[in-house]
Amino acid sequence: MGRDGAVMSGRHDMLSKGRSLAARLPRDARMVQILFLGVLLGAGALVRDFTLRPEQMALTFAAGLATQLACVRALGLQRVGVLSALITCLGLSILLRADSLWVHPLAAALAIASKFSIRAGGKHLFNPGNLGVIAGVALIPGAWISPGQWGSDVAYAAWFLALGAVVSSRAQRLDTSWAFLACYLGLVAARVAWLGYEWAVFVHQLESGALLLFAFFMISDPMTTPNHRGARVAHAAVVAAGAFAWQFLLFLPNGLVWALFIATPLVPLLDRVFRAERFNWRDNRALPTPGSPAPRTTTTLG
């Protein structure tokens, strides 16, 4: 075996080590997602001086989990756990801010209840985290979101990217995140070029923690994006264009979450036109029998 062969074999070793490491990660991508969102929340609360009170966080989780358990029991569902509810509660804690104690539990309860009550095509319609945030911003007094809270340090952006890529690939929805980022940043780049800004402005947008958080932890949710790959890319492009228009043509804040919210009805439409298998969290892959009716004990809720 020559030198090249040795290099190849070294690479092969590394690859197989990487694979075995990946195999050791929990099969359910939500475990990884919970871990990373937990790290982000901890880092945000400790290092980034989030104006989030521990009581608000505790109430978010208490209300979110109670709603999940109550709905599961009321509907007599089985094999439905609390992992997704935990993710929603983490997401709301990271994003939503309030000057009172009742806003967070209310938003969490609304978000989780929507999963069981607003459904189309065998899956829930709204991204629960997104719905909770929108309810907070639009309906609940004394609530807001702080898109600038992450700042734009390059290090943070790189962290988000690295963490998010892992989560998304476990959830097999990397395509949504990248398609969204490509469209959105493409539009931002076009604007920078058209207006004659320095490229530092583009880099500043690129380093936005809120953008990367949205791309890798919100729009990438496999349960509320279209089942068909091409449809997912189209959906991501629509959300990107909407977010861009919201922010740079209407000059309104929080374009990302609003665009995703407004584009929600598009998902069942796209699912109807482009038939594909539904996603299954536990096996981390699409359900094996396309078009077959979902079992009563569906796992898509949990």
Partner: peptide, 13 residues
């Protein structure tokens, strides 16, 4: 690198 863009929050604390 960019001008300051603001939002009014509902924070009255």
């Amino acid at each position: 690198p960019e001008d300051l863009v603001f939002q009014e929050t509902k924070d009255r604390a």
